[in-house]
Design a binder for these strands. Structure first.
Lengths: 141, 141
DNA sequence: TATTACTTTATAATCGTTATAATTAGTCTA
DNA sequence: TAGACTAATTATAACGATTATAAAGTAATA
């Protein structure tokens, strides 16, 4: 059940001293339950029914709050707007070039690449990102 | 000499039926010679002296032309504006969290990851991107 | 030379995101 | 519980990157 995830996320926020407002609850719930990776605007539109007066700024503000709490990751791909993804376990994404669908893809972290990069460039490496692109089964028809 | 690279790029464009205007030459030259990965605005500003009347639109238009010709790649990271990178050989990037510097980093392609992704997700995989983040030697002080 | 297609320019429009100020709601303490 | 303080939300405006449009210029072709 995803309600367990939601509760866990909320406890997480409470411990970080973040107030749980109805809007925050709804945004978080939407992020966890929609298995997609919505844009801020998509979240805004999805919650229009429940919160007719909610401002876009609220969505952005709270996505930032969640990001700072480590609950949400912002995905910046080529298209115009960022997408937001609930952090559960570490995973990568595979993205359909045709319809834009984003699917999670689990793979052991590329630690080896990180350590090589560190030694070659002299950087102190913190993290990496990787995405794979292709055509999804639906679009292949 | 990077002039050889420039000539090769120009031949490439000519073959594709793209006219070489002074502006296009300058933009290409700047992209090849500056070892950085400039934004459209940085290119625009860098060429202000030589082309006082050039429009930002020209920069964007031609970056798109170069992209379509396969000469240039657009890099979309978290920050507000895209960066553009001359395609030479395949390489990855390592990015400084502190100053934003982007350094090339060569590593054999992650073919294994691609093929695993393909079998797990059913996608037909075309390509992938990866970036590494950390703190560069200068910023470590 | 006349015609045509392509480029550049200047400018305005668009769109995602952020900043601001006012209002509202929540929390805390006396 | 009242009053004071803090944080969150709202509405709106501002911003900045990018794109669209229309006019003018430039090169290519017949």
């Amino acid at each position: 059940m995803s309600s367990a995830k939601i509760n866990a996320a909320i406890d997480n926020l409470k411990e970080a001293g973040v107030r749980i407002t109805p809007q925050r609850h709804a945004i978080l719930e939407h992020l966890i339950q929609s298995m997609s990776h919505p844009t801020a605007d998509e979240i805004y539109k999805a919650l229009e029914g429940k919160f007719p007066n909610m401002s876009v700024a609220t969505v952005y503000n709270n996505l930032r709050v969640f990001k700072e709490a480590g609950l949400v990751k912002e995905l910046t791909y080529g298209d115009s707007s960022s997408r937001f993804d609930c952090v559960t376990t570490d995973h990568y994404h595979i993205i359909c070039d045709s319809c834009g669908k984003i699917v999670d893809f689990h793979y052991p972290g590329l630690d080896e690449v990180e350590s090589l990069a560190e030694s070659v460039t002299g950087f102190e490496v913190g993290r990496h990102r990787m995405e794979i692109y292709g055509v999804c089964p639906d679009c292949k028809r």
